[in-house]
């Protein structure tokens, strides 16, 4: 079964089969990263543009390594060096890039829906590498891949996602993916960070972290970025850590083989204590490793699926 789509804009539109295809394909690509020669010729001659309108080291680097290990030509354009600073619109930027015949454009943007705008006007496949508070599909896929490595299957797992759900694209993509694959998803955070009607996405809302951790198999901590927000959300980071910070003591309520995940970069002492981040339950670095494999799979599948794309 090929991935029957031109673009990867989010997890929400994906079927369970498509998600499983990506995760299974990623297994094969993970092996490549363990070789001496970490490169296969799969996407030789393909041009990939990493178009980042927001600062990002992790995701951009991960895509770049993924592209390079598949032998694609991958180049980075970041907002500070692009024409964006000269006031060019996203549509104009996209049309100019498109004129150079890229095969894939990976976009990170602060505005929800920006990748959709791009996908509508570009022949190239568009991959959403994070759009505002909307989605970050490859993050959710790599999280699921990591969970499967530790827990074999996702169905039936209790997963707690803790923090600023309102502004988190990672939370949204993970909620979609984990509920599709049959996990029990709990979200917890300050009431000001819980978006309205989130229960309709199939999650349970908790306002106390201990209750959310009870019997949990997986804990995902989200990054708190109070410095970038309206201060009315949270009185202080100190109070946040006291109420929702992840500490080894709190983790005792979870199952014995709980895993701790974090999309990075970490705010040590804000959402997670160093003891927890560096402790035995943490799989944070494994997430980073798997990110490359999952992104290789996505690049491969979107290119392989290209033969059906033209009509859309």
């Amino acid at each position: 079964m090929p991935l029957k789509r031109k673009d990867l804009l989010g997890i929400e539109p994906l079927s369970v089969e498509e998600i499983n295809l990506i995760l299974n394909t990623a297994k094969a690509f993970k092996e490549v990263s363990t070789r001496d020669v970490k490169k296969v010729p799969t996407l030789r001659g393909k041009t990939i543009i990493n178009l980042f309108f927001e600062p990002s080291t992790r995701t951009r680097t991960s895509f770049e390594i993924a592209g390079k290990r598949l032998s694609a030509d991958i180049l980075n354009i970041s907002a500070s060096t692009s024409s964006v600073v000269k006031g060019e619109t996203l549509v104009d930027t996209a049309r100019n890039l498109e004129a150079m015949y890229p095969d894939i454009i990976i976009i990170r943007h602060s505005r929800a829906g920006a990748p959709h705008l791009l996908a509508n006007i570009c022949r190239a496949s568009v991959i959403n590498a994070g759009d505002g508070a909307h989605e970050h599909p490859t993050q959710a896929l790599l999280d699921a891949f990591t969970i499967k490595e530790y827990k074999k299957q996702i169905k039936g797992l209790k997963v707690a996602i803790i923090g600023d759900i309102l502004h988190s694209r990672v939370a949204r993509s993970n909620i979609h993916l984990l509920t599709k694959l049959g996990a029990e998803v709990r979200i917890a955070g300050p009431a000001t960070y819980i978006p309205v009607e989130i229960e309709k996405l199939g999650v349970k809302v908790y306002h106390h972290i201990d209750a959310a951790f009870e019997g949990c198999d997986v804990v995902m901590m989200l990054r708190i970025q109070r410095e970038r927000q309206d201060k009315s959300y949270l009185p202080s980071l100190r109070e946040y850590f006291n109420l929702f910070g992840l500490t080894p003591e709190r983790l005792r309520r979870a199952t014995k083989d709980v895993i701790i995940m974090h999309p990075g970069p970490l705010n040590r002492g804000v959402e997670i204590s160093s003891e927890a981040a560096d402790g035995p339950y943490s799989v944070i670095l494994e997430q980073v490793t798997n990110g490359v494999a999952v992104r290789m799979a996505v690049l491969y599948l979107l290119m392989g699926g290209k033969y059906e794309e033209v009509v859309s």
Partner: peptide, 18 residues
């Protein structure tokens, strides 16, 4: 505030300020 659409299920789904 910076809302661009109705606050509700769909603003939550789309990650747009409501």
């Amino acid at each position: 505030a910076h809302g661009v659409m109705n606050e509700g299920y769909y603003s939550t789904l789309l990650g747009l300020p409501g």
